[in-house]
Every structure is written in C-alpha cells, then in structure tokens.
Design a protein around this nucleic acid. Structure first.
Lengths: 331, 331
DNA sequence: CTCAGATGTGCATACGTATGCGATATACTA
DNA sequence: TAGTATATCGCATACGTATGCACATCTGAG
C-alpha cells in the first residue's frame, strides 16, 4: 500500500540501508548511487516515515509547545516565531493546548516521543516540569517560570518598563494608582507586580489593598477589576494592567461606565500586542522583543537537547514603555 | 534508560504482549493479571511510546490541522473546539502552521504519519488536497474548499447573513455600498461576494468596480481598501468586509481619516469574533456557529477515517446578521 | 605483483508495540 | 472418562528506518 524504503531499494537495485543513506546524503555513498536512489524515490513518490525514523533513531526532531488558552490573544504570537526558528534548525513544532497542568498532560507529552518541550504557561506550582525532569525530557521555560525545577528560561525583565511607567505616571500627576495583576501563581504576575511596587516606591507611592485586583490574564479580569475600581468613592486615576488583554478589558469597562480614557482614568498594558497599537485603541503599554524571546527559548532548548551538560541559562529581555493615547494627566 | 513494556513485563512476570493487552484492557486477560501489570507499570513509571505503537498498529491517532497565519485573530478560535472534539473521540490534534501551500507541506503532512488532516486555509487551487488524495490520506475541508478534489467539508452559508445585511442597509437608506473582499482564490471570499451581490440585486443595487477591493483576510486589506474608498469623490456610505479582521482594519482607517462610524460610513464584518463585540468596538457583523462547524469538521474526518467508503458530505452552517454600533443610516 | 588503505555497499540487527495464532490449563458436556 | 469448549497467556513476527560492522572492490605505492 504505502511506499517504503524497501520498495525504492528494489527499484534502484540497492539495499534498504543504502536508500536510507542516499536520501540523507551520506558522504560515504557514491554520487551515482545517490542519484539513482533519488530518481527511484521520486518515481515511486516515496516519503520517509517519521514514525519509522523516530523509532530507529530514538529521536523525533519534534518539539512540543505547551499552552493553555489559545483564545487569549497573547499566545498566537509566539507560535509563528517558534515555528520558524525550530524549522530553521531542523526541528518541527508540535502544539499542545491543554486547559490543565497535571499528570495526564505530562504523560501525554512524554508518550509523544518529543525531543523537547517549551513550557509557555507554567504556574509556579506546575507539576509538568517535575515529571519532565524525572523523565529526562529536556524543556525550557518561556515567559513564565516554575519554582522547584531549575531549567533554561527566556523571560521579560519588567523593571525598566515599570520604572518608566511609574515615572510617566508621576510626571503627569498621578498618585492614586491601581493594579490589575495576573494570577498569583504565575511568575509573570508576581514579577510585574513587584517591579511596579518598587518603581512606585522610588516616588514614595504605594498601592493600597483596595486598589489591587488579581485574576487570569484575560479581558474579564480587566473588565471586572476596572468596574469595581471605578465604583470606589475615590477611584484611581490610573490603572496598570498585568498585560494587554487585561487592559483591553479595562478599556471596555471604562467605555461601558461612561468614563473617559485617558481623561478620567489612564490605562497601561503590558506586551505591546499588535492590537494595542490599532488606531481605534492606541493603548499605552510596556513593550519588549517578543520574537527574539521566542527564538531564544527555541535555541536554548535545542542547545539543551544537543549538549545536555551545559549549565542552565536564564535569558532576560528588557522592557520599555510605549506611550500612546491611554495615558493622560491626572484629573 | 527509558522504561519499556518489556521492563514492565519482567517485573510483572508476564510476557511483553500481555503488558500491551493489559494496559489497553483487553477482555481476554484475567482481572488479576491486568491488575498486576498495572501495578508494575505504575511502579516503573511506564508510559507507552506512541512511536512504537504507531509503527506497530499503522495508526497514530493523530490528526493534523493545517493553517497559515495564526496571527490572524480568526484561526486561534478554531483550535480549542477542534482539540476538544478530537480528544473526546480518542484522537490528538497536531497543529501545522505553514505560510505556503505546496509540495513540501504535503510531504511534511504525509511523513508525519497522521491519520487525517483538517484543511482550514485551502485556496481553490491548493495542491495539498491533490497530494493527500493521491496518498490516500483522509482529510476534510474546514471553512474553505478547494476545486478539483472532492472531500467532506464544513462551511458557512453566507446567503442568509448577506440577505439580512442587504436588507438592513437598504432599510437605512444605503445605496452606495462597497465591498472589501478576501483573496479571489479562496472559496469563502467568492461565496461571500456572490451572496452579497445577489442579495443587493434583489433590491436593485449593484456594486460598481471602483467600490470593490480584494486582498488577504487581514487588517491591512481593510485599512488600505477603506482609505482608498474614503478618498473617492463619491465615497460609499457602507462598506461590507470579507471578515471581521478586515473590518477592524476598516475601522482603523476611518478613525485615522477622521471619518465617523457609523455617522459617515457604516461598516459590517463577518465571523462575529469575540473582539467584534467588545464595548470599545461593537462591530456589526455576520455570525454563525463556529464551534459547531469545527466539531462537525472533526466528526466528518473521523467518520472518513473509520468508514472510508461513505459518500462525501457537505455540512453547511447558516449565518445571520448581528447589529451593533457600526451600522447606521446613510448620510 | 602484493598489500595497505580508501571507497562503496550489504548484512544483521535494533528501536517499542501490536496482533494472529498456537499452546496450555481449566471447565464443562455427554 | 473422554472429548470439546473456554479462558488465559506466550511465541513469533511485523511495522519502517537507522547504524555498526563486515565485506568487496578498487587504487596506488613499493
């Protein structure tokens, strides 16, 4: 039914191993033989089976990208650069979207025979990294890291961005500043909150408890948090959001509440998604080089796969404030 | 190094095939043996190798989803339902994002040993369907279809939605109606354009050539097209866009041009993406049940895989107009 | 003319699992 | 008690490719 290397071998008058070697351009074979094999392969429409290859070689050249919540606008933007970087280095991307982070997911990743995994939605208490480590399956943290299991990582350093944001806010007279952060079990949420608090502290400002909301990195979190903040007797004049998607929710809540942005309240995001700079949105946000970060994560993982004994590396990417229309002076 | 079924067999004091059967709950084995094997497997942390399983059984239970351009807001929304539907039927989703549609892509799909493929970004002249058919690899068209190769498909019927849009426009006094459609080599672009033209014809309206733009289903197409339309000596009072993403671009162009929506021009999209109903956007658009369509595509493909001889089926999903804020009366 | 070295190819086997079929033991029937 | 059916499991092998090693052929030097 399906054409195998044996069929090609028969047609070319060589052995099956010779077909294998010829198509992978083994230097020990003569040019004439290679050519003959190639011709035969093409004539039969032969396509090597990755499954056979994987079983025999013990490597699949496939790398998993573990995500939750692809509907979140953030994640799709890491797929294309990851795909390209991996392809350019001879690996294939295999996307796994799982809503949970548990033993089943870990088993699934292991059973697929991946050469490595990029973890993009780890929580600090994820179980997946533990299982992968036990199994000896290489992985890299992207964006978020986990506690307990050390590994290579590519992350954002929110410090500079938050310092610039704090300064920009203070310069415009803001003192009542609120934060709608991500889930408390993610490293990104914690890092950003800490960076913001430290930056504000330099200006003698702190964020009181009733100005703090936390939740998943989605629009609902931004919407609900903003709705509640705007109802306070003394609402904040600025809201810093855990990421752009949260900020979009905040913009929506402000619109529904009839509150002008940035006239009545300023809103700042994080990630600088393409959507943020749409003319109908023009969100002020904190930017970093997402593509470079993705490529770095891919490279770190491949390095780990090919040279397992190197020390772990943490690649940190700087951030900066991008001022568009949702930042104004305090009323 | 890695635990195999043989290791489990040795520990449980049975043969390797017995391990295979026990873990897949073969009714021929005694409950006692199964239990003993399960215990041993757990103790060793055994995870069956998909690679070995695939080679032996000839099936991977993996289904590919072929996409281009994941950065387009539309595509991420089909991944989650596809994933869930396939998992519920014992298959795994493997995402393939390719920028092109060519022989290389087809070979890649074939070599991966997939059991089937969902084609979500076919053009009418795609080569992939040809190769898959030649290879006997089952596939289903999602959303877009291709000419030449017949197969199962799940698509939108734009007729009702376009009729409702035409009526809504005419009722509001619109006569100068423009269209920014998708690429001329996609079935969706053609279907929608045709449906719109027919619907308008019922009201005695036609779309003149200078009111028509075409391009990829992205924001740039909507932006550029709208920019040009608004510059015309007699600009249209309404613009119907090939999909929501194009419409977002149109909204952006109107904003930059200082043109009020819907005061000066009405804009209508297609797809009803979550973003379309954001309070800061509130795009009037044509909706359909995207999730159901995805699930149907998955089911059709699985049916094709498991019962290859059934006649091809075309699942068509109705559409309807959702009126929000970007539709107004003609000025 | 012989032999070391280089070059090119085949043989045997391994990878991990699934499955047809046969073997053994047990239960049941007449 | 013999024979048949049933339950339970192992043996042998297949799946498609890669790779260590042996073998054969050829080249060129001494």
């Amino acid at each position: 039914m399906v054409v195998t290397s044996r069929d090609v071998a028969k047609l070319a008058g060589v052995s099956q191993p010779t077909v294998s070697r010829a198509l992978r351009d083994d230097p020990r074979l003569s040019a004439a033989t290679k050519e003959r094999v190639r011709k035969s392969a093409e004539r039969l429409g032969y396509v090597p089976s990755d499954v056979g290859r994987a079983l025999s070689s013990g490597r699949t050249r496939r790398i998993g990208l573990l995500l939750t919540d692809l509907e979140n606008q953030f994640y799709p933007h890491i797929i294309a650069p990851a795909h390209h970087q991996l392809e350019s280095r001879g690996y294939h991307l295999m996307l796994h979207t799982e809503s949970a982070d548990n033993e089943v997911v870990a088993e699934r990743l292991i059973s697929h025979g991946l050469d490595g995994v990029i973890l993009a939605t780890s929580t600090i208490d994820s179980v997946v990294p533990l299982r992968l480590r036990d199994r000896g399956l290489p992985f890299v943290y992207f964006n978020r890291t986990s506690l307990g299991v050390h590994a290579d990582s590519a992350v954002v350093d929110p410090t500079q961005g938050m310092e610039q944001a704090a300064e920009a806010l203070v310069d415009r007279g803001h003192r009542r500043i609120a934060g709608i952060f991500g889930p408390a079990n993610t490293s990104t949420a914690l890092d950003r909150e800490l960076a913001l608090r430290e930056a504000l502290a330099h200006h003698g400002i702190s964020i009181p408890g009733h100005y703090v909301h936390r939740g998943p990195f989605d629009t609902a979190t931004g919407y609900d948090g903003t709705q509640q903040l705007l109802r306070l007797p003394e609402p904040p004049t600025a809201i810093l959001c855990g990421n752009d998607v949260v900020a979009f929710g905040a913009l929506n809540a402000a619109r529904v509440a009839g509150v002008d942005v940035p006239g009545d309240v300023s809103i700042i995001g994080f990630d600088n998604l393409p959507t943020a700079s749409w003319p109908i949105i023009r969100l002020t946000t904190i930017a970093y080089d997402l593509d470079a970060m993705v490529r770095r994560a891919a490279d770190l993982l491949i390095q780990r796969i090919e040279k397992p004994d190197l020390p772990f590396e943490k690649a940190s990417f700087p951030s900066r404030l991008v001022v568009l229309d949702t930042l104004g002076t305090a009323s």
